Computed example of a mutant assay.
Amino acid sequence: MSAGSIAWTQGRWTHEPIAAVEDGADLVVTAAEGSDAWRITSYGFVHASEHALLAPFTQDTAVEVEFTAAFSQQFDQAGVFVRIDDEHWVKAGVEYADGQPQVGAVVTDGRSDWSVAPVPEWLDRRVLVRVSRSGDALTVRAAVDGGELRLVRVVPFPPEARAEAGPLICAPTRPGLAVRFHAWRTTAADAALH
């Protein structure tokens, strides 16, 4: 990815959403009911029906996605998806779980894990998720309404891997989830972890 904004038309969908409509500079995406990404752990199932709009994600770059976290149903989610292949991927962003928005990540290396932290004040607000790729790691950060980025997760990630990344939306439990994405861009990777 070269630095700067990425046009919505530059990506390819892992699974086509119900709709993806440009509205000015924004992209409004409607998810299919039951869409999700998860592998095995705790639940025993594999879900590989996420809607992720992906473009190449090279070493020493960062991808940023901004969206409005207008969620109301269990597991409504949006953020960034980073994919190597079907069994090696990361999703990071905001997910509505147990009655409130949670910022977190799912890291999948054959099997998925999940980490979240409650951010009830982020509901219906503009969220930025940034994933930097540098060395042997991804660094996930997030912010709300232009505020300071906070560290969400540091993830082992093979430097030689060919990967793709971009906006993600899933609606595991209901029809009709539409998310307004405001920006998709790439920049240099973060210079330091701290």
Rank of each mutant, 00 (worst) to 15 (best):
E164F: 09
F57E: 02
R125L: 09
L177N: 03
E66Y: 09
V90S: 04
S115K: 11
S132N: 07
F57Y: 02
K91S: 14
G147N: 06
A171D: 08
G166T: 01
V82W: 04
A62V: 09
T41I: 12
A52N: 05
A105L: 08
I18T: 14
G166Y: 00
G104M: 00
V107I: 14
A7V: 15
H88A: 10
A192E: 10
S2Q: 09
A92I: 02
D26P: 08
A165T: 01
T173K: 01
A137H: 10
V21N: 08
E22I: 05
F45Q: 14
F71R: 02
A117D: 11
A48Y: 07
A165N: 05
I169R: 00
D98E: 10
A25S: 15
P101Q: 05
W8R: 01
P56N: 12
E50P: 03
P167L: 02
V144N: 03
F75L: 15
R150F: 15
P158Q: 14
V144H: 08
V140M: 01
S5M: 06
A31F: 05
E95Y: 12
A143Y: 07
G110D: 01
A188W: 09
D26R: 12
L151P: 06
T58R: 08
F45D: 13
G135S: 13
G4H: 12
D190P: 04
A31T: 08
H194L: 14
E164A: 12
T108M: 06
W8N: 03
D86S: 07
P120K: 07
V144F: 02
E121A: 08
E50I: 11
Q102N: 15
A192S: 14
V63F: 05
T9Q: 07
T58D: 14
E64W: 08
T9H: 10
I6L: 08
V179Y: 00
D98H: 15
C170M: 04
R174H: 11
P172C: 07
V46S: 05
A191W: 09
E148Q: 11
G135M: 06
D145E: 09
V154S: 10
R162K: 13
V119I: 07
T61H: 04
E164W: 03
C170Q: 06
P17W: 06
A31E: 00
G135Q: 03
A62R: 00
E121H: 10
A70E: 01
A20S: 15
E121Y: 11
L168P: 00
F81M: 05
